[in-house]
Design a protein around this nucleic acid. Sequence first.
DNA 1: TTGCCATACTCAACAAAGTGAATAGAGTAC
DNA 2: GTACTCTATTCACTTTGTTGAGTATGGCAA
Lengths: 199, 199
Amino acid sequence: MALRNAVMAALLEGEASGYDLAKGFEASVANFWMATPQQLYRELERMEGEGLVRARVVQQERRPNKRLFSLTEAGRRVLRAYVAQGPSKPLAIRDELMVKVQCVDIGDTGDIEAVRAAVAERVERATAKLARYRRMQERMLAGRTEDEYLATADRVGPYLTLQGGMALERANLQWGETVLKRLAQRTAALGGGSARARA
Amino acid sequence: MALRNAVMAALLEGEASGYDLAKGFEASVANFWMATPQQLYRELERMEGEGLVRARVVQQERRPNKRLFSLTEAGRRVLRAYVAQGPSKPLAIRDELMVKVQCVDIGDTGDIEAVRAAVAERVERATAKLARYRRMQERMLAGRTEDEYLATADRVGPYLTLQGGMALERANLQWGETVLKRLAQRTAALGGGSARARA
DNA sequence: TTGCCATACTCAACAAAGTGAATAGAGTAC
DNA sequence: GTACTCTATTCACTTTGTTGAGTATGGCAA
């Protein structure tokens, strides 16, 4: 029952179909709450049943019809109550890459190489994501400075969460790069790339 | 089937009981993979059934007996295969606080205050966690420099994931502090603390 | 001396999340 | 002309995760 809050937060930006939400979660919420299409459709269905959202079918000519969901007043109230209420859960991360890094010493240099590749991939992703975030930021600012924007904008939430996403990706990037360096050093130290006895 | 990899990664540090794992997940793995005691006991049970871990009952005099689990050779192989195999899932975060920040514009200054308090709590937690990580780091280094440590240590995985945890908490902290500042500005701008018309 | 906290688990039930595939029309690239 | 991708959604199923309670012992503090 936590996904629904994320969905409602996304719908604050306006009407969206399940499909819209599924790809990119309306671009901003996805940065801190991931969900598969199925989860979203299912949750939207339930929420409609409970009157938190309302659906409107849009006929389309060259595409399948779609149902656009929007927040109802009841949904808005529930969301406000959620925001106002006490402490949130601490933040749940689940990072397979970190598990692999933790295991980097398990085998020979081949295992180190596998981990190195995985970290390199993460670094690339983080770089790409950061670039995307920066473009989003520029679009939001639209020439204004941050101070101007925050003083005049109707909504600052999406901007602040975008900042959060950027902070996270910067951390990822910085960490990944030092790990890459360290692993290269270690591979060199353990025999310059040739195999080594198994643990 | 992903929790088990995290559990095995934790057992790389040596024998542990379900209870040990439950509190702190052997101190390092918990930073990137959370699990409740029940999940861990259940998973350990299954893993024992599949021969990935082996249990050893330790009689205790003034406490309930405990079962210490350790990795079997089969478990080690499975773990190595996991590390070696292709791309990991991208990292799953689920952050309620971010959902609340996204919604900060939903209501009046009271809602902003609630979000502010939640962010302040996050900042405090991040500060505490960072301090704890730094102590762990010092214990690991034991007087050596980072370079010395990484060149001589048997295992570097736990150190590198600790760095990851620290990077994450620093990002949290830095983000949280700017958000706090921004929200204070906004509260001031929206009427200096007095109520304002609802959205 | 009562009650709470810590160790050390187990059980049952349920809610939420994730996987994989199916459906179906339109556009686009080879 | 066929294979692939995009829009848009649904179904069936499995795996995880969560909640709450129950059991048992000992230590510590008010």
